[in-house]
Each structure stands twice: as C-alpha cells, then as structure tokens.
Amino acid sequence: MNMFTISGSPHVHGDESVKKIMYAVVYAMVPAMLVSIYFFGLDAVRVLLISVLACLFFEWVIQKYLIKGPVTINDGSAVVAGILLAFNIPANIPAWMLIIGALVTIGVAKMSFGGLGKNPFNPALVGRVFMLISFPVQMTSWPVAKPLFAPQLTDAITGPTALGLLKEGVGAGKTIEQIMSDPQMPDYMDQLTGSMSGSLGEMSAIALILGGIYMVIRKVINWQLPVSIILTVFVFAGIFHLIDPQHYINPTFHLLTGGLMLGAIYMATDMVSSPMNMTGKIIYGVGIGLITIIIRLWGAYPEGISFAILIMNAFTPLINTAFKPKRFGLIKK
C-alpha cells in the first residue's frame, strides 16, 4: 500500500497554472502577430523570432550560469516578454539592436530583480524604452505597411507614424485640418485594420481588441483595467478637443494610434507590475490614461503610453498599500 500524504486543506486544486496563463497571453497575441506579418512580411517574422529566441536564450543563460538555479524558460513568461518587445519596435530594426533590447528586457528588467513575479516594471517596456533612448533614429523610422501580396515597389520605405505626423504638424503651427489632409495620414479605417506605419504590434486595433476579449473570457485579465485607460484617454483628450478642435485632435484618433490599444490591453495588464485589486487597478488605469495624454499633447515624444505605464508601475506598490479590497463584514454605521 502507498504511504498516505498529509497536507493542509484544500486537497484539490483548480486547473490554472502560470504556464497556462502565459500561453493564453501568447494565443491572445496571435491575431496581432498575423496582422503584422501580413503588413511587414518576412521582416515581422524575423523580428518576432529574434526577439523571442533572444529572450529565451538570455533567461536560460542567466538562470543556468548566473543564478545557478532551476531553469524555467518553458513557463512561457520569456516568450510573452519577447513577443511584447517585438510588438513595440519597428520591423526594420537591425538584429543586434534587438538582441541588446532583449538583454535589457530579460537581464535588467526581469532577472536582476529576481525573475518571474518580482520585477516592478514591465520588462518588455523597459527594453523598448531603453532602445528608444539608445537608438532614437532606428527606433523612430517606421517602415510603411505594405500588404503581403501587394506588388513590392521598393524595399524599406519608411515614414512617420500618425502620431509623429501630428506632433510634427502641431509643432510647426499647423491646424488639425491641415495635418489631417496630409496624404501620409492614415484614415480611421486604416487605423482599425492596421494599414499604417508603426511598430509591429500597434497596427490593428481590431486584432488587439480580439485578443483582449479572449483574455477577458479566459480570465487572464480584468476588463476594467484596459477600459479605464481607454475611457480616461477618450474623456481627457475629448475635453481638449471640445475646447479647441483646431489644436487638439479628435479623441478617437488617440485611441487608435500610437500603440494605445497594445499598451492598454497587453502591457498595462501585466499581472506582475499592476495593482492587486479592483480599486487599485482602476486608479492605475486612470493614471496611465492621464499621463499618456499629457505626454502626447505636451511632451517631447509623440507617443506616451510606454512611459505612462512605466511611471504608473512605480506607483503600484503605493497603490497596493493605499487601496485595499472591500472586506466582508466591515462595520458600517
């Protein structure tokens, strides 16, 4: 007969695991990946592959030879970080820059804090911001999307992103109408389907929302957090648009450009670096929305969601301490 096991209750366990959650996030990113491959072709495949492999490699090297602990690269967290990093960079980035970005993502932002679950900042965003500051030229020259089966005219045509155009235009003193009439400016249909220039993952709002819905159904993320970010951006940008439509663009434009959907659905909801309860999550989301618009309207960079998320990541422990979930049976008078 077997030896009985003694342990504290509960004796059953739900079927959820870290690995399953991580791969659910990967599945949720598949539509956006397909869109990026459709528009950027082999370049997108190249960036995705290099990024994921580099992240896995660095995680393995660090766990095996630096920490000398168990190697857990198959838990999927490095894959998620790799894909998110790839989603945040242009498709024509040189491979060596990408590998450095992956090293920062895994080595600096994740493993130096102790690995999975201990990083205060979203690793992929740290990697992305590091690259943006270190290689500003390459990181801001965006290839123009050309559908996979369309005739290839020339290789590597680059152009500014919609937000870049906007920033440039406002800086030059143009009105919104003038800026919008620029032939390079994508219209709303392009923004929804992703037919514009930009980083790998920020292309199609529809694909991103699709993945987001999957994650909500799969209970990987709460819908409240992305919605609070999107609503804040919409309301805050909307107020300025109503005050002065000539200088401040329509809020829908803000929602569909500059990776806002990507940030709100995939980056801000990162479990490790976001607050632990609903009130906290909503406050965190509102904070991200506000900072994003502040940077977009008055900051030096055309887009701001990466910085906004990183700034709010820093506030997460504070939010966790300040806002507690509603206790059952709290005496109310």
């Binding site: 030896m3 009985f4 096991t5 003694i6 342990s7 504290g8």
Partner: peptide, 17 residues
C-alpha cells in the same frame, strides 16, 4: 515515516496539522 507531509515548510504549521 508512515505518512508523507506535503505543505509549507514550517514546523509550527506541521505541528498543528
């Protein structure tokens, strides 16, 4: 050993269990 313990590595907890 007649049984196996499986749980938090804490004598204080196991003592109670």
């Amino acid at each position: 050993a007649k049984v196996q313990f499986d749980g938090a590595s804490s004598c204080a907890f196991a003592h109670n269990l």
